[in-house]
Amino acid sequence: MNPEPFLQLDRVIHEKGRLAIMSMLAASPELSFTELRDTLGMTDGNLTTHIRTLQEAGYLSVTKSFQNNRPLTTCALTAAGKRAFTHYINLLERIIRQNKPE
């Protein structure tokens, strides 16, 4: 089996929790912290950690604002995040093709 696509898999995205965050943000221009937390069933701390990791990788931007005097945190994919996610999907498809019996 050719290990090359495996070597190229982005480990920041490959983790289950971060992949879920990236997937949700890939389908929506932006999502609030609470939407992500409730949909993915994560704890505040867990989600914060994953968001920070993705932010450090430059894949995600976080905007903090106020709505009706209540803090509102929204997350969105950056251009680099979209590219990395597309690349990750392409690699998965390559792996699937590679595993298909002739």
Binding site: L19, A20, S23, M24, L25, A26, A27, S28, L31, T39, I89, L92, E93, I96
Partner: peptide, 13 residues
């Protein structure tokens, strides 16, 4: 993995 991604993307929308 791809199936999970697809489901999450649909759910997000």
């Amino acid at each position: 993995h791809l199936q999970v991604i697809r489901t999450l993307m649909e759910r997000s929308a």
